[in-house]
Design a protein around this nucleic acid. Structure first.
Lengths: 222, 222
DNA sequence: AGCTTCAAAATTATAGATAATTATTCCGGT
DNA sequence: ACCGGAATAATTATCTATAATTTTGAAGCT
């Protein structure tokens, strides 16, 4: 439920904090202290608390009454969960979007795909990838559905940044191209079916622990 | 995202308001005035505002900055949207729940079905119906998914109460029985397929307007 | 009568202050 | 040294107060 262009201080704070959590600047478990944040934003803690409630609803923060708010933790199970929810909802959105897709939209989606392939870091890739998905899904004209998908994309992005903090190697997204080809040919159900599999693709990368051990980190790459 | 058992005043207010909105006691478009609510709950408006943020995230209220908060309006398009989202997500949940279903759970789900059939008013029917769905889906062990489904159930219930305010005629739920039968036979995919259709069933009832005109009201009945 | 303009009232948004709760530190006992 | 427990500090949750904005309503004008 990302209804946010409004100018209220609370929503501005919530946007900035969401950005920090997603980017990893605020790591899982980090405490969000209302007074400190209020001071940083030059505001009182009333709007800060309201921002907390929205982050909570988005699944980015967890609040324990009287003990404060923390950045939500996550594990492989949640990465999987978000991937499957995205698959289910994006498939639904695409089915409804198909009738409203125009060649112009498909062209812009192709540009987004090219931008993703050319991306040299995770952030650029994520932005282009998100643009692709939004472009082909938005025409479904289902605002509540799109809001849910946006929140799931935020979660996906967080998993992604957490895994590929520094290491990112360009890849050619064959799924995106296949989806666009199917859509261009009027073969909607094939596009839907590829999208459903595509979103559930979970990438893995090894990372070195502080103690020197190596373990695998997982994230949604699609 | 209905994380609510906590004792904070804001969450209590949010629960009570959600209940009023769902039941129709607060009709679509009704203004929610922070001072009045604060006085009613014997609190200040700070926790009231926090409750607003949660209702907003649940899609039960709409806030226009500096112009106040209103109970969210809805139309046939949103009834359809919620029905389709529920279908997509409940199907996903059931697929994962199947492996964890026990005969005891199926028995309780059968009881819930019987209770729904026996219900003499909408409220009783809704409670029993919700219990049925929760029982067979909960074992999916996907908390984020279940939270989304809960929010969609709240929206469904609102549509339902809005349509069948006074008129309710008992019905025998063949879908529920068919789902349970399929689950009992180890025929999971059939159960999933029936559930997917079932949740999208939209009931219609004629209602008389204040001006004497009659029009049809729609709601999710499943 | 109907519209416009301005002032009063109501309401929202935020700040500042206070009480209550939780975390931390430091000290004495074992 | 280590553990437990008061005293202190930090933090949350809430209330009261103030500023800013919007709505309401009435007077004056065409």
């Amino acid at each position: 439920m990302t209804n946010s262009q409004d100018d209220t201080i609370a929503s501005r704070i919530s946007r900035v904090l969401a950005e920090r959590i997603i980017s990893g600047a605020l790591p899982p478990g980090a405490r969000l202290r209302q007074d400190h944040l209020a001071e940083e934003f030059g505001a009182s803690h009333v709007p800060v608390r309201e921002a907390f409630r929205r982050l909570e609803a988005q699944g980015l923060a967890v609040s324990e009454p009287r003990r404060g708010v923390r950045v939500a933790a996550f594990d492989l199970a949640e990465v999987r969960e978000v991937a499957e929810m995205r698959a289910a909802l994006e498939v639904l959105a695409l089915r409804h979007a198909i009738a409203n897709l125009t060649p112009a939209i498909l062209d812009r989606a192709a540009e987004a795909t090219a931008a993703a392939d050319a991306a040299r870091d995770v952030r650029a890739w994520e932005a282009a990838n998100r643009a692709f998905h939004r472009l082909i899904l938005e025409p479904c004209a289902m605002p509540r559905l799109m809001a849910s998908i946006d929140d799931l994309h935020a979660a996906s992005a967080r998993f992604l940044f957490s895994a590929w903090q520094s290491s990112w190697q360009p890849r050619t997204d064959h799924d995106h191209r296949a989806i666009l080809a199917a859509l261009g040919n009027g073969n909607g159900e094939e596009a839907v079916s590829i999208l459903g599999r595509h979103v559930q693709w979970i990438g893995r990368t090894p990372v070195r622990n502080a103690t020197g051990e190596t373990r695998e980190i997982f994230s949604i790459v699609g």
